[in-house]
């Protein structure tokens, strides 16, 4: 889809997109955020043809809101780190990179075994969805199981993986 085509879709659905941004907590800044969204889309135009341009814009808006949330969270964390570091040794937060690599590998192993502990089918469905990006409907078809089975397995697996992620982040 040409850039101008996307722009037309954005203009046509301005109200809906603004409402979406506001629901995300964008509130009074919604107009500015929509502007930022458009700058982003223009700076990184889609590399593949888009079947659903409006869905593409919603997706981009969602990503933008998540990025904003992430940077707000990081800023808050920096502030609290700053006050913490005033009473500890300076420069301790930079771990050697090999150690970080080791931690990453350990995390990968732990995640694998936690996932496998959920059962082979659940682990496979999760990998297919999260790593290969296959739709639930297609996974159900491939494995010859119902979509509700796929849904409940995904719920369990995502819950376990997100909880694990949070445990890692707390350390």
């Amino acid at each position: 889809m040409a850039e101008s085509g996307l722009e037309a879709i954005l203009m046509q659905n301005r109200g809906a997109l603004l409402r979406f941004i506001a629901a995300h907590g964008g509130g009074e800044e919604a107009e500015d955020i929509l502007q930022e969204l458009w700058m982003r889309v223009r700076a990184n135009p889609p590399t593949k043809p888009i079947a659903q341009p409006l869905s593409y814009l919603y997706r981009a808006a969602n990503n933008l809101m998540l990025d904003r949330y992430r940077s707000a969270k990081q800023a808050a964390k920096r502030d609290s780190d700053w006050s913490d570091s005033a009473v500890t040794e300076p420069g301790r937060s930079d771990e050697p990179s090999t150690e970080r690599g080791l931690i990453a590998r350990e995390q990968l192993d732990i995640a694998q075994s936690e996932l496998d502990a959920l059962g082979e089918r659940t682990a496979q469905i999760f990998r297919r969805h999260r790593i290969d990006g296959v739709a639930q409907r297609d996974i159900a078809q491939e494995l010859g199981i119902s979509i509700s089975t796929v849904e409940s397995d995904l719920r369990r697996a995502y819950r376990a993986m997100i909880d694990l992620r949070r445990r890692f982040d707390e350390v």
Partner: peptide, 18 residues
Amino acid sequence: HALAIAEEDLGEMLPAET
């Protein structure tokens, strides 16, 4: 937001492909 961020970060502890 809190869940989606944690979910995005799952990538760090999962293999890049099956």
